[in-house]
Structures are given as C-alpha cells and as structure tokens.
Amino acid sequence: MIRKIDCVMVPVGDLEEAAAFYSRVFDLRRLWQDESSVALCLPETDAEIVLHTMELPSDVNVHYLVDDVPTAVATYSARGAVVRTAPFDIGVGRCAVLEDPYGNPVCLLDLSKKPRG
C-alpha cells in the first residue's frame, strides 16, 4: 500500500514498543539497532525511518506516498494508528494525518488528481 517513504528520524519513548507499532501498522522491517535507535524500512527499498530516544528537533515526521488516502487510513487505523486529521483535498490529491503512540504525526498523501506542472 505504501509507495514511497523518505529517510526520517522519529522520537519515541520506547524503542521496542515503537518498532513493534511501525512494523505492525505500516509493515516496516527492522534494518539495524543500537542503544538509542532502531532503523526500519519498507520491503524492497533503501528508505529508512529511524526511531530514536535522542534529543532532536520535534518537527521531524514521516511522509508516506500511498495509492489512495481513504483506503490507507482505513487500513492503518484498523491496525492501531490514531486518525489525527481525516482525509482532505490537496492540490494534487488527498492527504490525512495519523498519529503513532508517541504523538508523532504520520502524513499520508496520494496523487489522485493530476500532478501539478
């Protein structure tokens, strides 16, 4: 369902709990881990989400490109993600914001309208 993810760092309170959440909800796979970080990725990509317990800027979040935002919201909320902002129209398609157990936003985008340009 997820088509693209960029490398980002996400602050969490518990690495194992957060890794389990992102694996269960978004089908991410563990790449590596150290004392303060766990890196996860989508199958067949090199893009990473690095969950961490370090002090970093709070405006870091995850942006997923999906085929259909309403379908993705239904799927991921059924797996335990909280819907922070229901699907809404944007210039190129639809957008919604989910939330992980630590309050981090997880933004979903689709390109269901004709791309700009």
Score class of each variant (00 low, 15 high):
residue 1 M to S: 08
residue 2 I to S: 13
residue 3 R to L: 13
residue 3 R to A: 08
residue 8 V to W: 03
residue 10 V to D: 09
residue 11 P to E: 01
residue 11 P to W: 00
residue 13 G to Q: 14
residue 14 D to E: 07
residue 14 D to A: 02
residue 17 E to L: 06
residue 20 A to G: 04
residue 22 Y to P: 00
residue 22 Y to Q: 02
residue 24 R to I: 01
residue 25 V to K: 04
residue 25 V to H: 03
residue 25 V to T: 05
residue 25 V to A: 02
residue 27 D to H: 14
residue 28 L to V: 03
residue 31 L to D: 06
residue 32 W to S: 14
residue 33 Q to D: 01
residue 34 D to N: 11
residue 35 E to Y: 07
residue 36 S to D: 12
residue 37 S to P: 01
residue 37 S to G: 07
residue 40 L to Y: 00
residue 44 E to V: 07
residue 46 D to T: 13
residue 47 A to K: 11
residue 47 A to F: 06
residue 48 E to K: 14
residue 48 E to Q: 15
residue 49 I to R: 04
residue 50 V to I: 02
residue 52 H to D: 01
residue 53 T to Q: 08
residue 53 T to K: 09
residue 53 T to V: 09
residue 58 S to A: 12
residue 59 D to F: 08
residue 60 V to H: 15
residue 61 N to T: 13
residue 65 L to A: 14
residue 65 L to Q: 11
residue 68 D to I: 03
residue 68 D to G: 10
residue 69 V to P: 00
residue 69 V to H: 01
residue 70 P to H: 12
residue 71 T to I: 05
residue 72 A to V: 07
residue 73 V to G: 05
residue 74 A to P: 00
residue 77 S to N: 08
residue 78 A to Y: 07
residue 80 G to T: 08
residue 81 A to D: 06
residue 81 A to M: 10
residue 82 V to Q: 11
residue 87 P to R: 02
residue 89 D to H: 06
residue 89 D to R: 13
residue 92 V to H: 12
residue 93 G to Q: 09
residue 94 R to T: 02
residue 94 R to N: 06
residue 95 C to I: 05
residue 96 A to H: 04
residue 96 A to E: 03
residue 97 V to N: 01
residue 99 E to L: 00
residue 100 D to W: 03
residue 100 D to N: 14
residue 101 P to D: 10
residue 105 P to G: 04
residue 105 P to L: 03
residue 107 C to R: 11
residue 108 L to Y: 04
residue 109 L to S: 00
residue 112 S to L: 10
residue 114 K to I: 15
residue 114 K to S: 15
residue 116 R to K: 08
